[in-house]
């Protein structure tokens, strides 16, 4: 049997909102070490990985590894019925064809349960090696969201270049061009408002803004985002989910044909 309890439904609500447009369905792989997900968008140019560690849950039990095929739009519908402050418990019997979600209000005077039908989803797992990146940039997630949103009004793609001067986002379109540069900045007292640029070597890559915008749907999860860049490799846009784990978005760079 599988059972996982989170003290705040808001975390799961935000996670599913962050994923559901990019990947319509995927497998929650549950094991004694937690819940993980790997899913590609329909065009296979981006990949989402999610890791929620068992020790980040208030209670976590998984007797047997399981793959639970989930339609995220449907999961989102159910999670909309949970209050942000509700405690949420996910439950499934071994080999079950449904996932039970139980919501309890903070003072435990309202308890609801919803069963989500599970799907059979064939999915391939990709091996993602740990690697050193040419540039790793941590910045406020709201800043990232604003940059990619603002640039979308000017162009379809963005050239992201990291140098010792900072990280620069450039785009151009019919109406003109735009450049936004963020400098390494540890002045703000709050760490969440700082920008850290860890540069091993300068790197510049071009990406579709549409996807980078989509990743920004994860902004409500956490105040900081990390971008990892290496020449000719997918960018990694990572949002930590408190002590629970993280969601990572990988996007292939644009290449000249």
């Amino acid at each position: 049997m599988f059972e996982a309890r989170l003290p705040q439904a808001a975390v799961l609500k935000k996670l599913v909102e962050a994923l559901k447009e990019l990947v319509t369905e995927g497998n929650f792989d549950v094991s004694p070490s937690g819940i993980s997900l790997q899913a590609m968008d329909s065009s296979h140019v981006c990949l989402v990985t999610l890791q929620l560690n068992d020790d980040g849950f208030e209670h976590f039990r998984c007797d047997r590894n399981m793959s639970m095929g989930i339609h995220f739009g449907n999961l989102s519908k159910i999670l909309k019925c949970a209050g942000n402050e509700d405690t949420i418990t996910l439950k499934a019997e071994d080999n079950a064809d449904q996932l039970t979600l139980m919501f309890e209000s903070a003072n435990q005077d309202r308890i609801s349960d919803f069963d989500l039908k599970l799907m059979s989803i064939e999915s391939e797992h990709l091996g993602i090696p740990d690697q050193d990146y040419s540039a790793e940039v941590k910045m406020p997630s709201a800043e990232y969201q604003r940059i990619v949103r603002d640039l979308t009004s000017m162009g379809d793609t963005v050239l992201v270049s990291a140098t010792k001067e900072g990280i620069k986002f450039s785009t151009s379109g019919d109406i003109g061009t735009a450049n936004i540069t963020l400098r390494h900045n540890t002045t703000p007292e709050k760490e969440d408002e700082q920008t850290h640029i860890d540069l091993k070597e300068p790197v510049a890559l071009t990406f579709a803004l549409r996807y980078l915008n989509n990743f920004a749907k994860a902004t409500p999860l956490t105040p900081q985002v990390k971008l990892s860049l290496t020449k000719d490799l997918p960018v990694v846009v990572e949002y930590k989910v408190g002590e629970l784990g993280q969601v990572r978005f990988f996007l292939a760079p644009k290449i000249d044909d």
């Binding site: 590609m40 065009s43 296979h44 140019v45 981006c46 990949l47 391939e124 797992h125 990709l126 091996g127 993602i128 090696p129 793609t157 071009t206 579709a208 490799l233 997918p234 990988f250 292939a252 760079p253 644009k254 290449i255 000249d256 044909d257």
Partner: peptide
């Protein structure tokens, strides 16, 4: 025109 490779071009199937 610029294209994009599939994720499977970067990461190997397990």
């Amino acid at each position: 025109a610029a294209g994009q490779k599939s994720m499977t071009a970067f990461f190997q199937k397990k």
